[in-house]
């Protein structure tokens, strides 16, 4: 065993003090050491996007970051989207539009879309499609995911001033 490093991961506002090897990815640490298994791991090399989390407001592949690099930063995962029993508009839109089948890719898509829409509420449709092309889904054929995100985007923008 090589040496471990003591770090604090702030996930959805809650501090997790863990001790990890430097080579441990953020994705593995979130799941195995912090017990937040909503973040999924598909490929472990940056291609599928199922591990997408939001770090200090930016969507990132958590399999391509080491946990030591996230020490002290604000991480958001799918577990933090709903407020108690109330689902996030994106979560509801995915249900309404049949935006998931097996659900494996869903946490990654939700975090990707959340970050993109929070950063850019008025994002042009072409840019939204470009962003959504980041992640892979083996089930839905993408059209219902796109529909869901477009619907949630309207709701998240709120009534026009």
């Amino acid at each position: 065993m090589s040496d471990t490093v003591a770090i604090t991961l702030n996930i959805n506002g809650e501090d997790h003090r863990v001790s990890v090897e430097a080579r441990r990815t953020l994705a593995d640490t979130i799941r195995e050491d912090c017990g937040k298994t909503g973040t999924h791991i598909g490929c472990e090399h940056g291609v599928c996007g199922s591990c997408t989390v939001i770090i200090d407001g930016e969507p990132m592949r958590s399999c391509l970051m080491f946990a030591v690099q996230a020490d002290g930063r604000k991480i958001r995962t799918v577990e933090g989207l709903a407020k108690g029993d109330e689902l996030h508009p994106l979560q509801r839109a995915f249900i309404d539009n049949h935006g998931l089948q097996c659900g494996f890719c869903t946490p990654g898509f939700l975090m990707l879309a959340t970050a993109v829409l929070e950063k850019e509420p008025d994002i042009a449709d072409g840019d939204l499609l470009d962003a959504l092309s980041s992640n892979l889904c083996r089930c839905t054929g993408y059209q219902n995911i796109i529909k869901a995100v477009r619907q949630a985007a309207i709701e998240m923008r709120g009534p026009r001033k």
């Binding site: 996007g49 930016e58 962003a131």
Partner: peptide, 8 residues
């Protein structure tokens, strides 16, 4: 690449 790769 893709958006979340370009942020990093």
């Amino acid at each position: 690449a893709h958006y979340p790769i370009r942020t990093r």
